[in-house]
Design a protein around this nucleic acid. Structure first.
Lengths: 224, 224
DNA sequence: AGCGATCGTCGCAGAATCGTCGCAAAGGAC
DNA sequence: GTCCTTTGCGACGATTCTGCGACGATCGCT
């Protein structure tokens, strides 16, 4: 499960450098040049962590708007300007930053901080997930509905597992395409829909069953 | 297999901090403010490990009372006060502590020690594994199906033993090639498949038997 | 109601993977 | 050296998966 980072940094040189480095360390990296773009991207793609140099953005992520609980809790690491002092640091934490670094960056330290923040934010890994009548055994890759084992193909299982990571939460299509398929660009594709259809036809044998629910214009969620 | 820790620490600030941190690292954490409470909780919940700052508690856990053999062997890590010296350390081990740290804590070190103690206390590796009709005697390298001994070649046995380390869990092909063959690169090879085929033909004499199951695009697992 | 965007489902063809067979090289026992 | 077992791997056919286009249904908005 490679983590997805949103890199909101106005300076192209720094942004480009960090993107290359972080990608080679196995992260998914999305770039945004300014705060507004970053907010929109965060909403669509739901990164696991945001790296930003504007305190403003950090605060706006924390605020949350009516009807949008998303992103409220996304971990944020703030990259302060060179020569930043203790006051900036405190200010960043007051705005809800999870960690603070200032330029010049020691890259290895940045990665260490990213990993630490991700670890802190990650839910403890589960071997088994149950959602209503549905039970998923991750290590064995076995899915049962009302006790009956259901055979799922690879991608179907991964899709279900991704949704089951947080039942009831809506996952955007972009997010699922990233987590399950590793897609980086959001080309319009019907692949996800096809797989949802197949997944449903295998899980929802009885009429009235509906485990995988579509949220119009957004994505899918797992319910009971 | 998340370990359950009992955290017996009178100081609320330290207790709260440790609880949050340890929980985010995937441990089950139970709190107790003082020794008596801790003893009662330990008796009820049988944690996998006790963290405490009172030597007294450590000793009482070790004593055991008539009719209560529990907790006698539970691993204990003692957190000594700031400025503790070698004498405190020795005293702690005399009272039966498995490890000793003193404040100020380096959190990562604490986690490392917890993991080390848990590992040390873990049940010794199994000599014998049974999965359904299949029995594997590791030291003797003997495999029986429904009581009939089956002769397996070296690699076949090692492959079976690797799968039997965690029955039902799916092992990826890369994982098996690494564990059994020591391969480091993921070159595409049919070696593993060949051996699975041979292993099956020896284990699964009766039609309908299926001990080694393929998971498409992932790897193999052992089932009953 | 009308319109554009999105979604559910079907079917297919190419790609990827798997089970098995057979061979040749390597290794051991005698 | 000879015989036998083990082992890695290529080849073949069979199976399974998967991405995507097509078509109609549905949704949200005006």
């Amino acid at each position: 499960m490679t983590a997805a980072l949103l890199l909101a940094e106005p300076e192209p040189a720094i942004r480009g450098y960090l993107e290359r480095q972080l990608q080679s360390d196995g992260f998914h990296v999305l770039q945004a040049a300014f705060g507004g773009e970053a907010l929109a991207l965060a909403e669509r793609t739901r990164p696991d962590l945001v790296l930003c140099s504007e305190l403003e953005l950090c605060a706006r992520l924390r605020e949350g708007e009516p009807g949008r609980t998303w992103n409220r809790d996304v971990p944020v690491i703030v990259l302060g300007p060179a020569g930043a002092d203790a006051v900036d640091r405190v200010r960043a934490f007051q705005r809800g930053a999870d960690d603070y670094l200032h330029l010049p960056l020691v890259y290895d330290e940045l990665v260490a901080r990213i990993r630490a923040v991700l670890r802190r934010a990650a839910p403890p890994p589960q071997d088994r997930v149950e959602v209503g009548e549905l039970a998923i055994d991750l290590p064995a890759r076995v899915v049962t509905v009302r006790g009956n084992a259901v055979h799922l193909a690879g991608k179907e299982f991964e899709l279900l597992a991704a949704l089951a990571a947080e039942p009831h939460r809506v996952f955007t299509k972009d997010e699922l395409l990233r987590d399950v398929w590793g897609y980086k660009s959001f080309t319009r594709t019907r692949t996800l829909d096809s797989h949802v259809s197949r997944l449903r036809s295998k899980l929802e044998r009885e009429p009235g069953d509906r485990f995988v629910v579509n949220v119009w214009g957004v994505g899918y969620k797992l319910v009971d």
